[in-house]
Design a protein around this nucleic acid. Structure first.
Lengths: 342, 342
DNA sequence: TACAGATGCGAAAACGGTTACACAGAAGTA
DNA sequence: TACTTCTGTGTAACCGTTTTCGCATCTGTA
């Protein structure tokens, strides 16, 4: 039902052996000009394409890599996925993309799949980079690059400077004069949520500002969570003057909810996000954010993986840090409401 | 360097033949309780996973499908991709995702790749569904479902009702009282851009409204194009009172540019998009749009493809039409400026 | 002339599974 | 009892490549 034409068909038609065809196609070993031309012609005429599957079986190289992301609908990841795919395609690799839904079990499932489809390597943006996961990865035995999974691991990894994003955002808010700064966090217990929260806490602590229990709200990393978050904060008797969000999607959700409720941004409350996704510059007010350069993530992750695949680097696990930079936009301003009276 | 443990290792260890192991693993043919348990144990102990590659070679089924989209960063497609992937994973299929960048040559490249990796089927959101492409698809010889590629084709296809989206949007604007309605189109010459433009033209014609040359601007389907578009329109001596955009990304770009230039939306100009992406409800003013249910696209496309794969449907190509629905939001209102004086 | 190396090619053995076929014993049935 | 059918298993061929040998020629050089 599928392909009918094999290398042997080509060989027969061209009057040579399949070995010669193979050698010609892969430019490995000698083959006569004439013969080559003949093969070439037959290949063309038969619309022959060698079966990657058979090749993989023989060479134990599938030239297929697996990329696992927690949420392909998050623009940071879709943009990164896009760039990774382009970079790898150029090197002759295809990419099988899995969306783990930020779920621990599904992350494991994805790894199982990665193993059975015979991926040559794995790019893993894991939010649950626990021991179980790391063990599983080790068992598979192919090169791995961890993306955005904070925490020690025996693989190459690329991520932003730990806690820097929310730290920068919170510092910015503090410098503007805010004292009542809330935090809208991501999926609790994940390393990345932890890291983002720590950045906020660190900045607050450094400034000698207290962190009020009710000013920390943690849900998920999507805009829906942001909405819930916005609902929660706007229901407080005392609205914070600023909210530092763990990423832009959350911030957008918060932003919308606040506007719906009649609050003004940034007059009533300032807002910051992280990732600098396209939409943080398309909403209004535009969103102050922290650049998380998905292209840079892609480039570093891919080049690290390629080096491992080629064997051009075989040393200790490397850690690639990507510096962030704050982008001030319209959603942050000096606090205009009176400080709350105690 | 990669996997070492094969089915024969398991067989030897369990004291049976590889045939029995295979039968047990695939629940095909009889195998004794005891024997099964023994195999199971060995499989576990050796952390054995059958090689999908070898399986594919033998069965001529890779259980891998290819999905080609024009722009994975477009939320409509990333959302659709996500849903498609989930649906197919449940059926035991993995999906390899390609981003064609809405480029004709790359669409061809993707098909070539799909063929060589031995995809069992193809879900193809093609913007260039021309004869060359259709021929190539036919040559591959696996089931194909075309997504959003208007125009006759010999494969199952799923798309919105032709021209309906922008037609609904334009009608809405007309009903609000607009007469000077501009159109911000997508990549010219693509079938989908054509279709969207036709919807606009049709509504205008029906209402007896003239379409002014300078009120039609066509670029691409992304927000950057939208920005260019916004710049263009705002430079006109006479701004239209409404702009119908070919999708939400364009609309968001237009929206931002207009706001930057000091125009008010919808007071100075009303704006509509298509797709109803998440962000059309997160920006402000929220964007009037036309629902393009990516989940419905995913479901229909997947079920059509599965039927073909299983052979449970083998008849003529089917065309699945997905109806749209307008979502009125804050970006559209009655025109408030005086009609232009001629 | 003789020999080493380069060139061109084919036979056949893998790679790791699936499956058609064969066979034997157990169970059911007439 | 004699037959069929059902169970349970092994042998071996095969899927479409790559690749190791080995064997010819051909070329250049001493």
């Amino acid at each position: 039902m599928k392909k009918a034409v094999t290398i042997r068909d080509i060989a027969r038609e061209a009057g040579v052996s399949s070995a010669t065809v193979s050698r010609f196609l892969n430019r490995t070993g000698y083959v006569d000009q004439q013969t080559g031309a003949r093969i070439s012609e037959v290949v063309e005429r038969f619309h022959y394409r060698p079966s990657r599957i058979a090749q993989s079986l023989k060479t134990k190289m599938s030239r297929n890599l697996v990329l696992v992301v927690p949420d392909i609908q998050n623009p940071f990841y879709s943009s990164m996925a896009d760039k990774i795919q382009n970079l790898l395609l150029r090197e002759g690799y295809t990419v099988t993309l899995f969306d783990s839904g930020a779920d621990f079990q599904r992350e494991l499932t994805c790894l199982g799949l990665a193993e059975s489809i015979g991926a040559d390597g794995i790019l893993f943006a894991s939010v649950w980079a626990r021991q179980t996961i790391l063990n599983e990865l080790a068992k598979i035995g192919v090169p791995v690059v961890m993306i955005n999974s904070y925490g020690a691991c025996p693989f190459d990894s690329v991520h932003g400077v730990r806690s820097q994003s929310t730290y920068l955002a919170t510092r910015h808010l503090i410098e503007l004069g805010h004292r009542e700064i809330a935090f809208a966090g991501g999926t609790p217990e994940t390393a990345i949520a932890q890291s983002r929260k720590n950045g906020y806490l660190k900045a607050m602590k450094e400034a000698g500002l207290p962190v009020r229990q009710e000013y920390v709200f943690e849900m998920g990393f999507d805009s829906e969570s942001g909405r819930k978050c916005g609902t929660y904060f706007s229901a407080l008797t005392q609205l914070p003057t600023a909210i530092c969000c763990a990423n832009d999607l959350i911030a957008l959700g918060v932003l919308q909810t606040l506007l719906e409720r009649g609050f003004r941004v940034p007059q009533d409350v300032s807002l910051t996000g992280v990732d600098n996704i396209e939409y943080s510059d398309l909403c209004s007010p535009t969103l102050t954010s922290v650049i998380n350069d998905s292209g840079e993530f892609a480039r570093l992750a891919v080049s690290a993986l390629l080096e491992r695949l080629r064997g051009s680097y075989e040393g200790e696990p490397r850690e690639f840090l990507i510096p962030r930079r704050l982008v001030k936009r319209a959603s942050t301003a000096q606090p205009q409401r009176k400080e709350r009276q105690e």
